[in-house]
Amino acid sequence: MINHIDLSTVLRRTVCDLYSNLVTRPTGAAVRTAIETQLAELGGRTVTVIDFSNVGLLDYSCADEVVAKLLLPYCDDCPPRDAYFLFRGMSETHLDALEHVLERHRLALVLQQEDGAPTIIGAVSEAERRAWEATLGIGGGSVGEIGGAAGLATEETEMVLEGLARRRLMMRIEDQWVAVGSPS
């Protein structure tokens, strides 16, 4: 199931209908709580598209509250639910704040770029990036297929894919792996 969240709408609905900037920690916490409430109403595996298109400014504090604190529980051993996230509509200045926040928490996320192509940003190793891009490139596959495309040994590929899945950047469907953001 794909769920779409327009952050500027959430901001206006939960904090103030005159605001278009995601600034300050209390604002970020209120927006994150609204997203979590929406996610709690969904069952099963979901991909949530978080849309920054109509957000003006994003500061570090708000990026930490909205994005990092939203993702952290899902990268834990016992995530609250089987949720994945795809971010879109981010400007260069949004990314400036976000990339530092992701690095600080050793987090990564999938970003849909302006041309629609997904990419991963944040703290990822070279092997993780290769495996993720290979999975995206071949439209998903088995460990062997992804390892072949990425130029990684089977054992390493398996370990890397498990790590990517734990970080909500990759989905496992039986013995197949699919990169979050792949055209479904």
Partner: peptide
């Protein structure tokens, strides 16, 4: 970036 800096300084 200037507005972001202002925001963080005020916070």
């Amino acid at each position: 970036g200037f507005a972001m800096t202002l925001s963080e300084a005020c916070q």
